[in-house]
């Protein structure tokens, strides 16, 4: 379904002045993002590097916190993935979930797209 959504996004954003990625790129990026946000350690491992930086802004303390590997909460199935920009082997992606926003920096490493750095914030209540 996630790939389906990204594909639909491409169709919809086709009317925009400039699509951020080719259909092939968008599908590959959407797939790695779906792996990263899955409730499945194997898929998360496939999507990340050993040292992927995962950080979150705490809106209460106004501090930055490190999220230990394996401690990221899986995103809701109804999340929305937006490829904000792509340049060569790099991409900037936002994921809008029901409870938080994730910003992902994605890059090509070893011939595969990988999540390199992330920054998240929960919705304020």
């Amino acid at each position: 379904m996630n790939r389906y959504l990204v594909t639909l996004a491409l169709l919809i954003s086709g009317a925009a002045p400039a699509a951020p990625c080719t259909p092939k790129q968008c599908n590959a990026i959407g797939a790695v993002v779906a792996d990263y946000l899955a409730n499945d350690a194997r898929r998360v491992g496939r999507a990340t590097l050993a040292g992927t930086a995962q950080r979150r802004v705490d809106p209460a303390t106004l501090q930055l916190e490190e999220i230990p590997n394996g401690k990221l909460q899986p995103a809701a199935p109804s999340r929305t993935i937006a490829v904000l920009d792509v340049d060569g082997d790099m991409a900037a992606v936002a994921v809008y979930d029901v409870s938080r926003v994730d910003y992902l920096q994605i890059g090509m490493a070893g011939g595969h797209w990988k999540v390199i750095n992330t920054l998240s914030e929960q919705f304020a209540h």
């Binding site: 930086a53 950080r55 802004v57 106004l62 501090q63 930055l64 920009d85 340049d87 060569g88 082997d89 790099m90 991409a91 900037a92 910003y103 920096q105 890059g107 390199i116 750095n117 992330t118 920054l119």
Partner: peptide
């Protein structure tokens, strides 16, 4: 080209994560 993630920490925006090529 830099892709920067910035965070507002103690009221001040700072660059916290960067990928570049």
């Amino acid at each position: 080209v830099d892709y920067m993630q910035m965070a507002r920490i103690d009221g001040r925006w700072q660059i916290v994560n960067v990928i570049w090529s």
